[in-house]
């Protein structure tokens, strides 16, 4: 059962990965990415990490790819048919880098002891992940939240156009703070 689930979702995620780079329509690429993320969530489930699986669906599939699609649709609804392939010049670098990544991952997997370890029953539940996150991994957690805050501030700065000089009494930022 588990092997079957793994085989199906691994095959789907590989197919999705190929689709991301091979699709002609940007929307189809985004949908292939969605397929990759969805099958990854199933893989997390087979690893007993259910909280992570649901978060994967909510954050990546439910929010990030939706925003990708949103932007793609806003920017160019229909791209011209004959366009130079955007990945054309990258083949030379992509092949050796991909091979290196594959070799590194295979090395890591082969070094693992066979059979694996017995998991505690609460492994992967919301409580267990939360406890680890707010005790052992508190510092990385806070650093990540700071990073996200910087991103939000930068987006606000980039998105707010400078106020025209002729209307000084009601600045946009002053109203939002009130």
């Amino acid at each position: 059962m588990e092997v079957l689930l793994f085989a199906v979702s691994a095959a789907l995620s590989l197919a999705g990965g190929v689709g991301v780079v091979a699709a002609r329509q940007p929307v189809h690429s985004a949908l292939s990415l969605l397929l990759v993320l969805g099958s990854l969530a199933v893989l997390y489930l087979t690893l007993a990490a259910e909280f992570l699986a649901v978060l994967q669906v909510i954050v990546y599939a439910g929010a990030i790819v939706v925003l990708f699609l949103f932007v793609i649709m806003l920017l160019h609804a229909r791209p011209p048919e004959s366009r130079p392939s955007p990945v054309g010049g990258q083949w030379g670098l992509a092949v050796p880098l991909g091979a290196a990544l594959w070799a590194g991952l295979s090395y890591a997997v082969l070094r693992l002891p066979a059979g694996g370890r017995e998991l505690p029953p609460e492994f992967g539940t919301t409580e267990a992940v939360g406890r680890e996150l707010f005790s052992r991994f508190l510092l990385p957690f806070e650093v990540a939240s700071l990073l996200l805050l910087v991103g939000i501030v930068a987006a606000v700065v980039l998105g707010s156009s400078p106020a025209p000089p002729s209307v000084p009494p009601r600045s946009a930022s002053g109203r939002e703070e009130a």
Binding site: L34, E50, F51, V54, L55, V57, I58, A61, G62, A63, V66, L69, T125, T126, E127
Partner: peptide
């Protein structure tokens, strides 16, 4: 399941597609 509520929110966010 112990993530039921998140599952509901996740399903509705997939529905947006």
């Amino acid at each position: 399941i112990n993530t039921a509520l998140l599952l509901v929110l996740g399903a509705s966010s997939i529905g947006v597609y």
